[in-house]
Write a protein that binds this DNA or RNA. Sequence first.
DNA 1: AAACAGTTCAACCGCTCATGA
DNA 2: CTCATGAGCGGTTGAACTGTT
Length: 416
Amino acid sequence: MGRSPCCEKVGLKKGPWTPEEDQKLLAYIEKHGHGSWRALPAKAGLQRCGKSCRLRWTNYLRPDIKRGEFSLQEEQTIIQLHALLGNRWSAIATHLPKRTDNEIKNYWNTHLKKRLAKMGIDPCTHKAKSDALVSADGHSKSAANLSHMAQWESARLEAEARLVRESKLRTASNSTILQQQQEQPQHQMGSSSSSSSTTALPPALLASKPGAPPGPPPCLDVLRAWHGVWPAKPAIERVDLESPTSTLSFAAAGVGLVDGNAAAVRHQGGENLEPESADWKCLAKDRMDSFAGFSVDAFGGEAPWLPEPYTSQEGCAWGQFGAGLTGLLLGDSGAQKPLGYCGDSYATRRETCEEEDEEEEEEEEDEEEKEGEAKKSYWNSILNSVNSSSSSNSAPAPAFYNNSARVDFLRRSPVP
DNA sequence: AAACAGTTCAACCGCTCATGA
DNA sequence: CTCATGAGCGGTTGAACTGTT
């Protein structure tokens, strides 16, 4: 059933690549581009299937691949994006320059997943494990909305990936490869592009890449929270992932989680770290000094992936958006409820939300206490970072999530 | 030193999606 | 619209490596 394996043909080699094979593949692609992957092995003199060649190139031989240990910054990004996108490795890889989806996937499965599990966090849901069952009760609504929002981001990432591919194709057409193609017009660059995600760097990123020192690491409040380490640096530093449509710009703002979050956080992770977690803490602490909060600031305060209403009305701060999503995820306080979810649809107006929120706040204060604060902290961290990120050049630091904060975001109906 | 268990990661497999005839 | 084909994605495998007994 299904299509027969592409390597089924007799004589096609499988298994680890030899240096000679690598050399052949590299030499061929450097000279001709890969063109059609299916046709490449024969032309390059390789006894491999095209699929295998493509994989070897995209995951290993490509010159723009960064290998070696993942930085804490990268870990943070992976965790945050995984919380929002799930196992969509290619989409995640879009935001991790020079990393392949395969590498990210492996790293998640072998490192991050285990760490989260050890800390009592379900790596699938990013919830405290004890909360996993709870979600079935009254939080389905919130979950649905989370899903809805995640769809925005997913759609945006996909669109971005397409843009990048197109852009790269255009870029490629001007590159030396083009020259080579002119010499060998029969070859086409095809979709080299997509070599997954890591090649799929936004033009701006590509332009700024060479030699550019990495910016300050994006903050992962999750980590900060887990380890009770707070940035001492209030200065605002922005890390823009430079994705043309990115909602994921990280910034440093020296703003930590507010109110009870820190305590809750410490309770969840800091004091109960198991050995491995403790190691991570040490690692994190070393690097944490350079971290700060997130800010919402690219695109001049606009959020290109959101419907205009969200970005055009006054007072609709991204930090608030993040807070709202956080609240939604936490499924608790009305203050944390996403503005877009006041009633049955996102079309509900802000005023309505405020009224409802006020009524619900009192009732839900009690519930809040029942809810594990650790879980809030966790989601606060992830969602603040992910959602507050949009992109702009000068937006203010995020209105970080506060348990009692007014939540204003998602004013009108979202994109379908 | 040997055997075993656990971990890592490159590579494979099978499926879906996109595209063009 | 349907079908064929190529490419990409995510899950899984297994060899190599590392740690433990």
